[in-house]
């Protein structure tokens, strides 16, 4: 097992009844890297994340995290090992205050000890959240909600942060700010980050390694600076057109 790998996915197959959603997906997530997973709607990105987080059980294949097999483990177990997801569509707990959202972020016993410290950290990272701490999340702007979702994911002191579709429905300027914050987390804390995106250019620009997922299969993968944007777009759209 490669010491440098935080997480590896090997030959993962996931089916819903007769429908197979993932075909032999293999990916590698080196420690400290930013890895992007690029794919259109329905390419299997959410299925992949759910399988990694133990929400649905893979048919075959293996997910290894820090040298341990976590395939099909309980979500709470996987989260406590250090995998943390900022869900798609910046889904926050609308009726709860920003503060309460963050408290839920540190829900597991493993995270609760460091709650205060982490709270200070995310407030520093996203000062807007501190100002709105006692407001209900439903009153936040789109960008602030996204920040809250990421901050909440950071509350459990993860080793791997998965950000599902940060740019969805946000203004480019806002997305840029959030991406910069993520870069900061990666650089200063050495946190391994997975960006799950539809947008090709930004993903390649911000990540060290990229995988392109099309109809449940990895069609391209490798260091982001070696991947040609046009080729990725071709793969992405080309097959999409026949879909």
């Amino acid at each position: 097992m490669n010491e440098n790998m935080l997480m590896t996915i090997e030959n993962l197959n996931v089916s819903y009844g007769d429908f197979q959603a993932l075909y032999d997906v293999s990916m590698q997530f080196p420690k400290g890297a930013i890895v992007s997973i690029i794919g259109a709607n329905g390419a299997g990105k959410s299925t992949l994340l759910n399988a990694v987080l133990g929400i649905n059980k893979p048919h075959s294949g293996k997910v290894t995290f820090q040298g341990q097999d976590i395939t099909g483990k309980r979500t709470s177990t996987i989260v406590s090992k250090g995998v943390s997801l900022s869900p798609e569509g910046s889904s926050v707990f609308e009726d709860m205050t920003v503060y309460e959202n963050l408290v839920v972020g540190a829900f597991l016993p493993s995270a609760r000890k460091k709650k205060k410290e982490r709270m200070e950290y995310v407030y520093k990272l996203f000062p807007a959240l501190k100002e709105k701490a006692s407001q209900r999340a439903t009153f936040l702007s789109g960008g602030q909600r996204q920040m809250l979702a990421i901050a909440r994911a950071l509350m459990s002191d993860p080793k791997l942060l998965i950000c599902d579709e940060i740019s969805l429905g946000l203004a480019p300027v806002v997305v840029g700010d959030i991406y910069n914050s993520i870069l900061e987390v990666n650089e200063k804390m050495g946190l391994t980050i997975v960006l799950v995106e539809q947008e090709v250019k930004r993903s390649l620009d911000y990540s060290d390694i990229s995988y392109v997922l099309v109809k449940g299969s990895v069609v391209m993968g490798g260091p982001s600076d070696e991947l040609d944007e046009a080729a990725v777009k071709d793969a992405y759209f080309g097959i999409n057109q026949f879909a």
Binding site: L53, I55, R74, T75, S76, V79, S80, L85, P87, S91, V92, F93, E94, D95, M96, V104, G105, F107, L108, R152, S156
Partner: peptide, 12 residues
């Protein structure tokens, strides 16, 4: 509030 988001925070 949001069962899916709660689950990925480790809520059983």
């Amino acid at each position: 509030d949001n069962p899916a988001a709660a689950e990925v925070r480790g809520v059983h």
